Simulated assay, not measured.
Amino acid sequence: MSYNNILTETLNGITTITINRPSKLNALNRETIQELHNAFDGADQSKDTKVIIVTGSGEKAFVAGADISEFADFNVEEGGKLAAKGQELLFDFVENLSTPVIAAVNGFALGGGLELAMACHFRVASTNAKMGLPEVSLGVIPGYGGTQRLPQLVGKGRAMEMVMTAGMIDANQALSYGLVNHVVEQEELLAFCEKIAGKIMRNSSVAIAEAISAINANYKDGVDGYQAEIEAFGNCFGTEDFKEGTTAFLEKRKADFPGK
Results as ranks from 00 to 15, higher is better:
Ala109His: 10
Leu150Met: 03
Glu59Arg: 04
Asp73Ile: 03
Ala129Lys: 08
Gly111Val: 09
Phe233His: 11
Ile215Leu: 14
Glu31Val: 11
Leu25Gly: 00
Val101Cys: 03
Gln173Ile: 12
Ala211Gln: 13
Lys243Ser: 13
Ser213Trp: 12
Ile230Thr: 14
Leu110Cys: 09
Asp221Lys: 14
Leu7Tyr: 00
Phe93Met: 02
Lys195Ile: 11
Lys24Ala: 11
Leu133Asn: 01
Ala174Asp: 11
Ala248Gln: 12
Gly139Pro: 09
Cys120Lys: 06
Ala217Gly: 09
Cys193Lys: 05
Leu97Ala: 05
Glu78Asn: 03
Lys199Glu: 13
Val163Ala: 01
Gln148Asn: 04
Lys252Ser: 11
Asp224Met: 11
Ile33Asp: 00
Phe40Val: 01
Gly245Lys: 04
Gly111His: 07
Val140Phe: 08
Val124Ala: 10
Met160Asp: 12
Leu90Gln: 04
Phe91Tyr: 10
Asn203Gln: 15
Pro258Leu: 15
Ile14Met: 01
Phe71Ile: 13
Pro142Trp: 03
Gly259Met: 15
Ala211Arg: 13
Phe62Asp: 09
Glu70Leu: 11
Thr49Glu: 08
Ala209Asn: 08
Asn96Met: 03
Ala64Ser: 13
Ala228Gln: 14
Asn4Tyr: 06
Gln173Val: 14
Gly259Thr: 15
Tyr177Ala: 04
Asp241Cys: 13
Ala228Glu: 12
Asn4Pro: 03
Glu194Gly: 01
Gly42Met: 06
Thr99Ser: 09
Val180Arg: 04
Leu133Val: 01
Gly238Met: 08
Gly155Gln: 07
Glu115Val: 07
Phe74Gln: 02
Asn181Gln: 11
Val136Asn: 04
Phe192Gln: 04
Gly238Pro: 07
Gly143Ser: 05
Met168Gln: 08
Cys120Leu: 06
Lys85Gly: 03
Val63Asn: 10
Lys47Thr: 12
Glu31Gln: 15
Tyr3Asn: 03
Leu114Cys: 08
Glu229Phe: 07
Ala211Val: 14
Leu25Phe: 06
Glu9Tyr: 00
Cys120Thr: 10
Leu89Tyr: 01
Gly146Thr: 02
Gly234Asn: 14
Val184Ala: 05
Thr16Asp: 00
Arg149Met: 08
Pro258Val: 15
Phe122Leu: 13
Gly222Pro: 06
Ile230His: 14
Asp44Trp: 04
Glu185Phe: 01
Glu251Cys: 02
Glu115Asp: 08
Leu153Thr: 03
Leu138Ala: 07
Val206Phe: 13
Ala72Gln: 08
Leu133Cys: 01
Arg253Asn: 15
Ile169Cys: 14
Val140Leu: 10
Ser46Ala: 04
Val163His: 01
Thr147Ser: 05
Phe71Ala: 13
Val140Pro: 01
Ser213Lys: 15
Phe257Tyr: 15
Glu244Cys: 14
Val124Met: 14
Phe249Gly: 11
Asp67Gln: 11
Ala43Gln: 05
Gly132Val: 10
Arg158Tyr: 09
Gly259His: 15
